[in-house]
Computed example of a mutant assay.
Amino acid sequence: MKEPLPARVRVLVADDEPLVRAGIVGILGTDPAIDVIGEAGTGHEALAAARACRPDAVVLDIRMPGLSGLEVLRELRRAGPPLPCLFVTTFGEDDYVAEALRLGADGFVLKSGSPHELLLGVHAVAGGGAFFSPSVARRLLTGRRVGESGRAHDARARFDRLTPREREVLRLVGQGLTNTEIAGRLVLAEGTVKVHISSILRTTGARNRVEAALVAVHAGEA
């Protein structure tokens, strides 16, 4: 009996720079498990395409003329079930990254980063996980901002309120693992992992999976 073919990931790519967009599409095309089902050069096009075809993941540029990637994310979060969004960013856009996190972005990769990170990021967010390019994570976590030590203390306090099993789950969430991968790692049913994550969100006050992952990372647990 033949093994069933793995599910393919349907991706929409939005970037206002044609060469950058073509590069992203080209990289995604090297993965036989990814199908690029649409391209958009403006935020308005991206929003319309995302609503029309409901891809498994959207790769979004943060800054686009007219309707920005942040505004696209805000609109997508207002309507229907969450659509995984992976942002491509450049150095110097930390304020945009912080706002995207607040709005519920699922991950970030650098335009100047490794193509492998883009592929990992798409698979992670499409599978229900979160993903940060290491350099983006470092900037978020080690930036010398006022209140950084207070943030770490708050994250530790929230992490310590979790049960031992929830801490195990959150550590893996912080590493970008999907529910399926966490279930396999901890030998749990996937439904049990979902229950743990719902409890983690309630206990830590995180609004989404990415905020929960940041609790683990700021607490030094991921």
Rank of each mutant, 00 (worst) to 15 (best):
P4D: 01
L5P: 01
L5W: 01
R8K: 15
V9S: 02
V9I: 14
V9P: 00
V9A: 05
R10V: 07
V11G: 08
A14E: 12
A14T: 11
D15Y: 00
D16H: 12
D16S: 09
P18D: 07
A22I: 00
G26S: 03
L28D: 07
T30Q: 13
I34D: 01
V36H: 04
I37G: 03
E39D: 05
E39C: 11
A40D: 09
E45T: 09
A46I: 08
A48C: 01
R51I: 01
C53W: 02
R54H: 09
D56H: 15
A57V: 04
V58L: 15
V58D: 11
V58P: 08
L60N: 08
D61W: 05
I62F: 13
I62T: 10
R63Y: 09
P65G: 14
V72N: 11
V72P: 10
V72S: 12
R74K: 14
E75F: 04
L76K: 05
L76R: 08
P81E: 15
L83K: 02
P84W: 11
L86M: 06
F87Y: 04
F87A: 01
F87N: 02
V88F: 06
G92A: 12
Y96Q: 11
V97P: 00
E99S: 14
E99K: 13
E99D: 15
G104W: 02
V109Y: 11
K111Q: 13
K111P: 00
K111D: 10
H116Y: 03
L120C: 15
H123R: 15
V125F: 08
G127D: 01
G127P: 01
G128V: 07
A130M: 03
F131K: 02
S133E: 07
S133I: 02
S135E: 13
S135I: 05
V136F: 09
V136W: 07
A137K: 03
L140N: 06
L140H: 10
L140Q: 08
T142D: 13
G143S: 14
R144Q: 07
G147I: 02
S149K: 13
S149E: 14
S149C: 03
G150W: 06
A152W: 03
D154E: 15
D154Y: 13
A157K: 06
A157G: 08
R158I: 01
R158N: 02
L162N: 00
P164R: 07
E166T: 03
E166R: 12
E166W: 04
R171I: 13
G174M: 13
G174R: 02
Q175W: 11
Q175S: 10
G176K: 05
L177P: 04
T178H: 04
E181M: 08
I182T: 07
I182A: 05
G184F: 06
V187C: 06
A189M: 08
A189H: 13
A189S: 06
G191K: 06
G191R: 10
T192G: 06
V193E: 04
V195K: 15
I197R: 04
I200N: 03
R202T: 12
G205P: 07
G205L: 14
V210W: 00
A212Y: 03
L214I: 03
L214Q: 10
L214H: 11
H218E: 15
A219P: 04
G220C: 14
G220V: 07
A222G: 12
A222I: 09
A222K: 05
